[in-house]
Structures are given as structure tokens and as C-alpha cells.
Design a protein around this nucleic acid. Structure first.
Lengths: 219, 219
DNA sequence: CTCGAAATACTCGAAGTCGAGTACTCGATC
DNA sequence: GATCGAGTACTCGACTTCGAGTATTTCGAG
């Protein structure tokens, strides 16, 4: 049950909450939800309880009391240890200071896009652009509203960050759409050939088209 | 062993390769590596073999032959079924057309940054900016080199995408650094107060500072 | 020709993720 | 005054991910 050390940011959030005050897991979930941290940190009950267990095993948190209020299920209240406090600052510092490699779905999709063929790809990219625009309009509204309520920007930076990334994504998608639509994307002819021969079931000379790729880059 | 349907993009890559021609798992790994898909799709042996197993269970791929060449370990060659072909185009279309919600490490870190205090946060953000710059220079060089080798842009879009995101990230981080450094970040005073009282071990009135947040946003 | 490094082709078990399910309580509603 | 939904507080097990380990073979340098 040992958390693969520093893998799940939910563990970091747990440590953070216990830095504020002792809590039981359900309360942690409720607090994270109230503060809208759920939107930035994946949270589900199964993971929460196993993450808490593993933090205890690592000696970063300890059971403070196990109470039975009335006939409710037991609540186990946890507190932070000294080592936990150190881990919080250390882990968080690392997360902020060292860019991690993330594998996004869309990056994977782009790298496999050749299988789709230019026409289908174009349709799907247009659809994505539409959805991104809708999402952006909504997010912008939320942010503006937060501003009106005098919510300190500090509490909203993660939201701004996501928004900035999405805007860039939309720009990228739109540029790609243009290049496919007007045929200016380099390699689009080879793309169509490849796709057609795949659909026809004949084995295309992918290796031939791709060889320059392999040769052209250092290992 | 059933792959949580459409979760791991590696499964999609496997289907794609079998769309080209029958292969055994080890060869898939080698091919993905050769084509540099590893950089966009997380690949490791354990996952590969279990993903392949589960695709077979789902009837998207089938065992074609189990050969023992010389005294090498057995190789099981798989082929794509009709349902597999459909799944490839369907899944890939979905991935391209529907933006997925991704939880990045940095977004989590930003949402927990208050625990760090403004001074430490500033130091760590500066460090991140430095590292991002280094990474960007390297990536740009790789892309330019690819261009010189006449690598079709189609084969490089995923790389361009990642680069665009990183550039945006750097811009965001630099802006944040400026705002913290010159004190223009809204809420920075409350931030310092909060952090100091946390360090002192007194329980700060986080709820008080945060309440407006809760009140100010629709559920 | 022979020794070691690299490649071939996986296996295995420990750990982590996920979310539906459980079992109770409380307050409001009809 | 019974019920119904929302909240409280977790549990469970199926499924996934991970990567070090294994056993063999090939290849090139000396």
C-alpha cells in the first residue's frame, strides 16, 4: 500500500490539510470540495482512503483518535507528523520548481492522427475547436465573476493556468485546421496516399515514408 | 484484465500498429520506439502486455500464431479484427474531437501553492522558469533539425503542440513571478499572514479568508 | 574463438486507481 | 408519523500500472 512515493498529488493535498488542523478523511474530501480543489486535484473516495493509509505507513501522518459519535460509522482523525511537515514543503517545492513530463490524451491523439486520414481528421479538429471555444467562454465567465466577488487572485491562479493552456490549444488547433484545409500542411499528399492504401487493406510502405524520420533524429 | 475501456492510449497505439500489419508485442514496442511515439505515449512492458491481453479479451485483436524461432522465447503474433478496426477510428476520432479534462501536476501544485509562502514560492517559480527555458531551447533545436531533414510536418505536430503548451506555461510562470515580485498579486498580504501563522503553529483563520470563495461561486 | 554487452521476448508480484455499494442518520414533507 | 432524499463515513474488489527481473541469443572487439 505504500504510495509510489510522490505520485498522487491527492496525498500532497491531504498533508496540506493536516498542516492546517487534524481531520478525518471524509472531512478532507468535503473541505477539498468546498474549496474547489477537486477541479485541480483528482479526488475519489477509494484513492483518498488508500492514500491516507499509505501516508500513515510512511510515518507522515498519525492516527489521533478514533471516535464513534452516536451510531455513525467510526471516524479516524489524523494529524501531521514532523516528517510530514517537511515532506509537504519539500514535495510542493519540487512540484513547483521542476516541470514534469505529462502525457496528455490529445498529444497521443495527434501522434496517431495519421490513421484517420486528412478529411476525417479535419472534421474532428473542427469539432474540437467548437468545444474548446464553448469551454473557454464558460471559464472566462467564471473567472470574471470570481473577480467581482473580490476573490484574491492567489486563490484562482490554477484556474488561470488551465485557461491559458486551453487558449493555446485552441490556437494550435485552429492553425492546424487552416493548414489542412488549404492543403499547406507539409506531407498531406503522402498522408492521403497512406490512408487510402490502409483502408484498401494493402500494406502501405510506411517504413519508407517514415525512414527519414528515424534517420533524421539523434537517438 | 479488461482495459477500463478507452483509458490507456497505449491500447490505441497497439490497435494502430496492427492496422498496419500483424505483430508481436515486443515488435510493437520496438516500432513505437523507432518512430518516437514513446515521447507522446507512455510505454512500458508490463502495461503493454496486459493491454494486449485485454484487447484480445475484448475481441479487438486475435492471436494469429505462436512461434518459437530457434530457442528464443515464444512470440505471439496478433492481428486486428473488424471490430478492432472500427474501434481504432472511433476511439481516435473521440480523442481528437472531445477535449478531455487532464489533471496536471503543476495545476495541483499551483492550487496548493499557498502552503509555501510567497518567498519560497517565488524562488521555486524562478527555478521552474529557468528549467522551462532550457527545455524550450532544446525542443526548438530538435524541431528545426527535423525541418532540415525534410521531415513532413504531419509527423511532428504532436511535438509542436507540446512546445506551444510549454511556451504558454513559461509565459504564465513569468507573469506570476513578476506579480509576486512587485507585490501586485492580489491577496499577497493575506498570503504572507496565513503562511506565517501556519509556520508558527497557530491555527489560522483560513475559513475566514476563504469563505468569500465558497460563497462567490455557483455550485 | 571467446567474453561481455546489447538485444530479444517476456513474466511476475506489489502497489495503485476507481467508483459503485453499504449502512446509518437527520430533517423536511406529505 | 412514515418516508424520502440528502448527507455522513467509509469498504470492497475488480481492474491497472509499474518496472525490476529472467533467460536466452546474437554480435563485435580483442
Amino acid at each position: 500500500m505504500t504510495v509510489r512515493r510522490r505520485s498522487n498529488p491527492l496525498a500532497l493535498a491531504v498533508i496540506g490539510l493536516l498542516y492546517e488542523r487534524p481531520m478525518h478523511p471524509y472531512e478532507m474530501a468535503a473541505t477539498l470540495r468546498e474549496r474547489r480543489k477537486e477541479e485541480s486535484i483528482k479526488l475519489n473516495y477509494g484513492s483518498l482512503y488508500s492514500v491516507v493509509q499509505s501516508l500513515e505507513k510512511q510515518g507522515l501522518i498519525v492516527t489521533q483518535e478514533t471516535r464513534k459519535d452516536g451510531r455513525r460509522p467510526e471516524r479516524t482523525v489524523y494529524g501531521l507528523t514532523e516528517r510530514g511537515r517537511v515532506e509537504l514543503l519539500d514535495w510542493l517545492s519540487e512540484l513547483v520548481s521542476i516541470p514534469a513530463r505529462e502525457f496528455t490524451q490529445f498529444e497521443a491523439a495527434l501522434s496517431l492522427m495519421p490513421y484517420l486520414g486528412p478529411d476525417q481528421a479535419l472534421r474532428m479538429l473542427l469539432e474540437r475547436a467548437r468545444r474548446l471555444e464553448t469551454e473557454l467562454v464558460g471559464s472566462q465567465a467564471v473567472l470574471e465573476q470570481a473577480g467581482e466577488v473580490k476573490l484574491p487572485r492567489l486563490m484562482v491562479v490554477e484556474y488561470e493556468y488551465r485557461l491559458a493552456l486551453r487558449r493555446t490549444e485552441l490556437g494550435f488547433v485552429n492553425a492546424l485546421i487552416r493548414d489542412i484545409a488549404d492543403g499547406s500542411l507539409e506531407g498531406i499528399d503522402a498522408w492521403r496516399r497512406l490512408h487510402d492504401s490502409l483502408e484498401a487493406g494493402t500494406r502501405p510502405d510506411i517504413e519508407g515514408e517514415v525512414r527519414s524520420w528515424n534517420a533524421g533524429r539523434p537517438s
